[in-house]
Protein backbone atom coordinates (compact mmCIF):
# COMPACT_ATOMS: atom_id res chain seq x y z
CA UNK A 1 0.00 0.00 0.00
CA UNK A 2 2.65 2.49 1.07
CA UNK A 3 4.81 2.38 -2.07
CA UNK A 4 1.66 2.97 -4.14
CA UNK A 5 0.83 6.13 -2.19
CA UNK A 6 4.37 7.42 -2.57
CA UNK A 7 4.30 6.85 -6.31
CA UNK A 8 0.95 8.62 -6.60
CA UNK A 9 2.28 11.59 -4.64
CA UNK A 10 5.38 11.72 -6.81
CA UNK A 11 3.37 11.60 -10.02
CA UNK A 12 0.95 14.29 -8.91
CA UNK A 13 3.68 16.62 -7.69
CA UNK A 14 5.61 15.97 -10.93
CA UNK A 15 2.59 17.02 -12.97
CA UNK A 16 2.12 20.11 -10.84
CA UNK A 17 5.78 21.10 -11.24
CA UNK A 18 5.59 20.66 -15.04
CA UNK A 19 2.39 22.72 -15.16
CA UNK A 20 4.01 25.49 -13.12
CA UNK A 21 7.09 25.54 -15.36
CA UNK A 22 4.96 25.63 -18.52
CA UNK A 23 2.83 28.47 -17.22
CA UNK A 24 5.91 30.44 -16.20
CA UNK A 25 7.20 30.00 -19.75
CA UNK A 26 3.93 31.14 -21.32
CA UNK A 27 3.62 34.10 -18.99
CA UNK A 28 7.19 35.23 -19.66
CA UNK A 29 6.83 34.95 -23.40
CA UNK A 30 3.65 37.02 -23.25
CA UNK A 31 5.40 39.70 -21.22
CA UNK A 32 8.29 39.79 -23.64
CA UNK A 33 5.89 40.13 -26.58
CA UNK A 34 4.11 42.96 -24.80
CA UNK A 35 7.44 44.70 -24.26
CA UNK A 36 8.21 44.30 -27.95
CA UNK A 37 4.90 45.97 -28.81
CA UNK A 38 5.70 48.85 -26.46
CA UNK A 39 9.19 49.17 -27.84
CA UNK A 40 7.98 49.21 -31.43
CA UNK A 41 5.47 51.88 -30.45
CA UNK A 42 8.28 54.05 -29.11
CA UNK A 43 9.98 53.61 -32.49
CA UNK A 44 6.96 55.23 -34.11
CA UNK A 45 6.99 57.91 -31.44
CA UNK A 46 10.60 58.85 -32.20
CA UNK A 47 9.76 59.37 -35.88
CA UNK A 48 6.57 61.30 -35.10
CA UNK A 49 8.49 63.60 -32.78
CA UNK A 50 11.03 64.25 -35.53
CA UNK A 51 8.17 65.36 -37.73
CA UNK A 52 6.70 67.59 -34.99
CA UNK A 53 10.08 69.29 -34.65
CA UNK A 54 10.33 69.86 -38.35
CA UNK A 55 6.87 71.35 -38.91
CA UNK A 56 7.36 74.79 -37.21
CA UNK A 57 10.53 75.21 -39.25
CA UNK A 58 8.66 74.36 -42.43
CA UNK A 59 5.76 76.68 -41.60
CA UNK A 60 8.17 79.59 -40.94
CA UNK A 61 9.87 79.03 -44.28
CA UNK A 62 6.59 78.92 -46.17
CA UNK A 63 5.36 82.03 -44.34
CA UNK A 64 8.31 83.97 -45.71
CA UNK A 65 7.06 83.45 -49.25
CA UNK A 66 3.32 82.97 -48.90
CA UNK A 67 2.07 85.15 -46.06
CA UNK A 68 -1.59 85.25 -46.94
CA UNK A 69 -2.07 81.44 -47.01
CA UNK A 70 -2.93 81.60 -43.33
CA UNK A 71 -5.67 79.00 -43.45
CA UNK A 72 -3.48 76.19 -44.78
CA UNK A 73 -0.68 77.01 -42.38
CA UNK A 74 -3.00 77.04 -39.41
CA UNK A 75 -4.41 73.69 -40.41
CA UNK A 76 -0.91 72.22 -40.32
CA UNK A 77 -0.15 73.77 -36.92
CA UNK A 78 -3.46 72.60 -35.44
CA UNK A 79 -2.99 69.07 -36.69
CA UNK A 80 0.50 69.03 -35.19
CA UNK A 81 -0.77 70.19 -31.80
CA UNK A 82 -3.45 67.53 -31.92
CA UNK A 83 -0.80 64.90 -32.58
CA UNK A 84 1.31 66.06 -29.64
CA UNK A 85 -1.70 65.92 -27.29
CA UNK A 86 -2.94 62.52 -28.47
CA UNK A 87 -2.89 59.82 -25.81
CA UNK A 88 -4.32 56.66 -27.36
CA UNK A 89 -3.15 54.83 -30.45
CA UNK A 90 -6.44 55.60 -32.19
CA UNK A 91 -6.24 59.35 -31.48
CA UNK A 92 -2.63 59.39 -32.56
CA UNK A 93 -3.45 57.68 -35.84
CA UNK A 94 -6.27 60.16 -36.46
CA UNK A 95 -4.00 63.15 -35.79
CA UNK A 96 -1.25 61.74 -38.02
CA UNK A 97 -3.72 61.32 -40.86
CA UNK A 98 -4.66 64.97 -40.42
CA UNK A 99 -1.04 66.09 -40.44
CA UNK A 100 -0.33 64.11 -43.57
CA UNK A 101 -3.36 65.63 -45.26
CA UNK A 102 -2.49 69.17 -44.16
CA UNK A 103 1.10 68.78 -45.35
CA UNK A 104 -0.17 67.58 -48.70
CA UNK A 105 -2.19 70.73 -49.19
CA UNK A 106 0.89 72.72 -48.13
CA UNK A 107 2.91 71.09 -50.92
CA UNK A 108 0.13 71.71 -53.39
CA UNK A 109 0.24 75.35 -52.34
CA UNK A 110 3.98 75.55 -52.86
CA UNK A 111 3.40 74.84 -56.53
CA UNK A 112 2.00 78.36 -56.87
CA UNK A 113 5.13 80.01 -55.49
CA UNK A 114 8.13 79.42 -57.75
CA UNK A 115 10.40 81.36 -55.37
CA UNK A 116 9.45 79.07 -52.52
CA UNK A 117 10.09 75.98 -54.60
CA UNK A 118 13.50 77.31 -55.54
CA UNK A 119 14.44 77.98 -51.91
CA UNK A 120 17.31 75.73 -50.86
CA UNK A 121 16.20 75.55 -47.24
CA UNK A 122 12.69 74.56 -48.28
CA UNK A 123 13.86 71.77 -50.57
CA UNK A 124 16.11 70.39 -47.83
CA UNK A 125 13.21 70.41 -45.39
CA UNK A 126 11.10 68.60 -47.94
CA UNK A 127 13.76 65.96 -48.40
CA UNK A 128 13.96 65.43 -44.63
CA UNK A 129 10.20 65.25 -44.39
CA UNK A 130 10.04 62.58 -47.09
CA UNK A 131 12.68 60.56 -45.24
CA UNK A 132 10.78 60.85 -41.96
CA UNK A 133 7.48 59.93 -43.58
CA UNK A 134 8.87 56.74 -45.05
CA UNK A 135 10.42 55.94 -41.65
CA UNK A 136 7.01 56.44 -40.06
CA UNK A 137 5.54 54.01 -42.57
CA UNK A 138 8.19 51.39 -41.78
CA UNK A 139 7.85 51.89 -38.03
CA UNK A 140 4.10 51.46 -38.44
CA UNK A 141 4.67 48.22 -40.35
CA UNK A 142 6.92 46.88 -37.59
CA UNK A 143 4.51 47.98 -34.85
CA UNK A 144 1.54 46.36 -36.59
CA UNK A 145 3.52 43.13 -37.05
CA UNK A 146 4.27 43.06 -33.34
CA UNK A 147 0.66 43.84 -32.42
CA UNK A 148 -0.50 41.01 -34.65
CA UNK A 149 1.88 38.56 -32.93
CA UNK A 150 0.83 39.76 -29.49
CA UNK A 151 -2.90 39.72 -30.23
CA UNK A 152 -2.69 36.27 -31.80
CA UNK A 153 -0.88 34.98 -28.74
CA UNK A 154 -3.40 36.31 -26.24
CA UNK A 155 -6.45 35.36 -28.31
CA UNK A 156 -5.50 31.73 -29.01
CA UNK A 157 -5.37 28.82 -26.58
CA UNK A 158 -3.68 28.54 -24.09
CA UNK A 159 -2.66 32.20 -24.17
CA UNK A 160 -6.26 33.39 -23.82
CA UNK A 161 -6.57 31.69 -20.41
CA UNK A 162 -3.47 33.43 -19.10
CA UNK A 163 -4.45 36.71 -20.74
CA UNK A 164 -7.68 36.68 -18.73
CA UNK A 165 -5.92 35.86 -15.47
CA UNK A 166 -3.15 38.42 -15.88
CA UNK A 167 -5.27 41.02 -17.68
CA UNK A 168 -3.44 41.22 -20.97
CA UNK A 169 -5.62 43.10 -23.42
CA UNK A 170 -5.51 43.26 -27.22
CA UNK A 171 -3.70 46.25 -28.67
CA UNK A 172 -4.90 48.56 -31.41
CA UNK A 173 -3.31 48.58 -34.84
CA UNK A 174 -1.89 51.87 -36.04
CA UNK A 175 -4.15 52.33 -39.02
CA UNK A 176 -3.73 54.95 -41.63
CA UNK A 177 -6.39 56.25 -43.90
CA UNK A 178 -5.31 56.42 -47.45
CA UNK A 179 -8.27 57.78 -49.35
CA UNK A 180 -6.53 57.22 -52.66
CA UNK A 181 -5.76 53.61 -51.84
CA UNK A 182 -9.26 52.87 -50.55
CA UNK A 183 -11.20 54.50 -53.36
CA UNK A 184 -12.44 51.94 -55.89
CA UNK A 185 -10.70 52.10 -59.23
CA UNK A 186 -12.71 53.99 -61.79
CA UNK A 187 -12.98 52.28 -65.11
CA UNK A 188 -13.82 54.40 -68.11
CA UNK A 189 -14.68 53.16 -71.54
Amino acid sequence: MLPGVIIAILVVSGIIIVLILVSIGIYNSMVSLRNKVNNSWSQIDVQLRKRYDLIPNLVETVKGYAKHERETLEKVINARNMGIDASSVKDQAKAENMITGALKSLFALSENYPNLKADQHFSRLMEQLNGIESSIAYARQFYNDMVMKFNTRIQTFPGNVFARIYKFTSRDYFEIEEPEARRPVEVKF
Partner: peptide, 16 residues
Protein backbone atom coordinates in the same frame (compact mmCIF):
# COMPACT_ATOMS: atom_id res chain seq x y z
CA UNK B 1 23.95 60.32 -50.04
CA UNK B 2 20.64 61.08 -48.30
CA UNK B 3 18.79 58.67 -50.60
CA UNK B 4 20.55 55.53 -49.36
CA UNK B 5 20.73 56.87 -45.80
CA UNK B 6 16.98 57.34 -45.43
CA UNK B 7 16.27 54.00 -47.08
CA UNK B 8 18.56 52.10 -44.70
CA UNK B 9 17.19 54.01 -41.72
CA UNK B 10 13.58 53.25 -42.64
CA UNK B 11 14.11 49.61 -43.52
CA UNK B 12 16.09 48.91 -40.36
CA UNK B 13 13.12 50.25 -38.40
CA UNK B 14 10.88 47.85 -40.34
CA UNK B 15 13.30 44.99 -39.62
CA UNK B 16 13.39 45.93 -35.93
Amino acid sequence: NPRIYYMVEGLSIAAG
